[in-house]
Design a protein around this nucleic acid. Structure first.
Lengths: 223, 223
DNA sequence: ACCTGAACACCGTTCAAGT
DNA sequence: ACCTGAACACCGTTCAAGT
């Protein structure tokens, strides 16, 4: 029925070449999230983007959660790269925490993707390994090193969740929500918040992050 | 057709009395979340629990997000109650952060509900007001007080998100995920994590939380 | 072995029409 | 004024049947 000179492999690659492997699916899923946000990432939309039926995805991912975990794992690529030589441990921690924040910020809703999953892939484990390694050199008890690593990760995720929530309140919603907050901040009822409003609504998230991280790292010295 | 002696008001209260006010809807929504988790909270299931059509909810909540914000606001009730007299500022901060954690833990998936919303209701604002108030007494710059309040809140939310994620890996999934993690933790590839495994998989979340919070509060003294 | 097509049991949201 | 009924445009997941 088809042209006789068309080999079966050429037929397979008619239109787009068949893209269905786990890595292509994960990359495409991250692209869809970047374009339209996490809420728009649907197994059906992903399948369509891969030129495949929705059910086919379940041959590669047991569930949507599994896909999300693979996306989180992919996002952390590079976070455990070797640290520059000669960095003080304080700066090593700042660098590592900053890498996690940057990795989450690289994709729209990245923190939400990460917070909802538990990857045990190499990117995630190497990152944790590196972070705990730096902390074991400076923490008295080994338990404290582990707990401090968790503290840094939880703070970073919590912070970035908030940062991206503010980001994704797009053009029209952000001013509205600021106005709402401003209206709610009656200086008689909430004198401290009224005084804090400028800082609270500042978009200098890097400064907020640096402040919190510095608190944690400083606490390590003294505690 | 109906019994002649049945007044219309008696008919209205046949079965359950008509429960449709924002407070009842929020309370019922929190009950549904406690029973079956956040993923099972559906506008349609909530409507059914309130003996109402799904569309009716949209007369009280513009969107599901609005409902979730109202739930988050309700969860924070009591968090801004007056602090006991004579507490050192360190203990005031510990108390306030602990109240937020407890409030989030009180409901299944409480941290996820909270993290996905931005309430400007009185419970939320009074809590922030109180927290910033305590910090302004001890922080040099007013900017630092605000940023530290954000740090404490972000850490608490990030921590509790993780705590409840571990909790909701119910009976059969938890052992499976621990086995998976254990298998992944090759001591040659991840020596630090292998050494940290006991702490990493500990369920003493209160101790983890206390450690992280203490780091932040200690950092405040020195910074 | 791998994919399609079609179905199952749902979603959030809107809105005419009723009372 | 408030609610119902019904619809619109979707979901995640499963699985027989095809090739």
């Amino acid at each position: 029925m088809g042209p006789t000179s068309t080999s079966s492999s050429a037929q397979r690659s008619r239109g787009r070449p068949r893209k269905m492997g786990v890595p292509e699916a994960v990359a495409t899923a991250l692209r869809l999230v970047d374009e339209d946000g996490l809420d728009a990432l649907t197994m059906r939309r992903l399948a369509a983007a891969l030129d495949v039926q929705a059910g086919t995805l379940y041959r590669h991912f047991a569930t949507k959660q599994t896909l999300l975990a693979a996306m989180a794992e992919e996002m952390l690529a590079g976070c455990a790269d070797p640290l520059p030589d000669g960095l003080a441990w304080r700066d090593q921690l700042t660098e590592l925490a900053g890498r996690l924040r940057t990795a989450l910020l690289r994709h729209r809703d990245g923190a939400r993707v990460y917070a909802g999953t538990h990857s045990v892939g190499p990117n995630t484990l190497n990152y944790a390994e590196t972070l705990v390694g730096v902390l074991r050199e400076t923490c008295p008890a080994p338990e404290a090193a582990t707990r401090t690593a968790l503290t840094i990760i939880h703070f970073t995720v919590g912070h970035t969740l908030e940062e991206q929530a503010a980001q994704s309140l797009a053009g029209s919603e952000l001013p509205a929500s600021l106005t709402l907050l401003h209206a709610a901040l009656d200086p008689d009822a909430y004198p401290n918040l009224a005084a804090a409003e400028a800082t609270l609504t500042s978009t200098d998230f890097a400064a907020h992050f640096a402040h919190g991280l510095n608190l944690i790292i400083t606490g390590l010295t003294t505690g």
